[in-house]
């Protein structure tokens, strides 16, 4: 860990101005959102930026907006804490609010932004699986216009996305979900808080009210592949079926087969696979049991146990 070496910090007031700045100043520049990843990269990973373009003074990048069609737009500079505490998100997608609440500490979440988190493409990012089961898209501002892409296609490897130098991630867009959509996110890590996900599992299901049959199943996994992924092979096993513990277990097994975890100081790959199985099962059963209104930490902890 070292102290930052000299660089300039610019604070443009609009996205075009930021991109223009970047274009004019040439290579070696980095965009700064919350800084919780960038500053660590500077201190710990030998990153030496030539200059930094801070996006925090750009008003259009912040805020959470709900459209009349039910879609939700989250500005890239929206902090994790804002997502965690947003009344709109807590009501509409409590599991997304929960996934944001799993990130670091309140101090971190007051800085870390959803756009920065996605652009940094950490495989263990807590919010990514939740966004993946919501079929979220990201909007990118680049020379020649805007590009909108599914989040699933946005990540291409650890720390790698389809973004090119000079691109700015501006928005996360969550398309409308059916009225009986239910989601759940379980973070599995030994410490109760202040930990990286050893395994993160998000599920989204649409359960036919009268017959308790799954009309739509989405499963996403974090920290067990080079990028956060959808468990595309596991999902169909549950389609048009009722969510039972034994079926959930089978779906969990399939998800476990599908992921490609690594062994590291936190966990072995084999254990991560086991935990994908168990936590996918638990997440499906929790989702099937319906939303739990209580978003307290204890309630969340008890659901992941």
């Amino acid at each position: 860990m070292k102290r930052p070496e000299p660089f300039e910090v610019f604070q443009p007031a609009s996205v075009p101005e930021a991109r223009e700045f970047f274009r004019k100043n040439g290579p070696g520049g980095h965009f700064l959102a919350g800084g919780t990843d960038l500053v660590i990269a500077i201190k710990e990973k030998g990153l030496v930026p030539r200059y930094v373009v801070d996006l925090k003074k750009i008003p259009s990048l912040s805020g959470i907006r709900e459209s009349c069609d039910g879609s939700l737009t989250i500005g890239a500079l929206t902090t994790m804490r804002e997502i965690e505490t947003s009344s709109v998100i807590r009501k509409k997608y409590p599991f997304l609010a929960q996934s944001a609440a799993e990130v670091g500490s309140i101090q971190i979440r007051n800085r870390a932004t959803i756009g920065g988190n996605m652009a940094n493409a950490t495989p263990s990012a807590d919010v990514a699986p939740a966004l993946l089961v919501l079929n979220a898209k990201v909007k990118i501002s680049r020379s020649g216009g805007e590009k909108i892409v599914l989040l699933e296609e946005f990540f291409i490897g650890p720390g790698k996305t389809i973004m090119e130098p000079g691109d700015i991630l501006t928005e996360i867009v969550i398309p409308p979900t059916p009225p009986d959509f239910r989601g759940e996110y379980i973070k599995f890590s030994p410490r109760e808080m202040m930990d990286l996900a050893y395994v993160g599992v998000a599920v989204g299901v649409v359960v036919d009210g009268s017959r308790k049959i799954c009309r739509d199943v989405r499963i996403a996994l974090g920290a067990v592949s080079p990028t956060p992924i959808r468990a595309r092979k596991a999902e169909p096993l549950m389609l048009n079926q009722g969510i039972t513990p034994s079926l959930a277990e089978r779906v969990g097994e399939e998800a476990s087969n599908e992921c490609k975890p690594i062994s590291d100081v936190r966990s072995s790959a084999a254990y991560r696979k086991e935990m994908v199985r168990v936590n996918t099962k638990r997440a499906l059963l929790n989702a099937a049991a319906g939303y739990v209104e209580n978003l307290s930490w204890t309630a969340r902890r008890d659901r992941r146990y």
Binding site: E8, V9, L32, G35, V52, R81, S105, N110
Partner: peptide, 14 residues
């Protein structure tokens, strides 16, 4: 708002 001052750059503080 509470933040970790070890992760905030002076250049952001205007």
């Amino acid at each position: 708002k509470p933040v970790n001052s070890c992760l905030v750059l002076s250049g952001e503080l205007e």
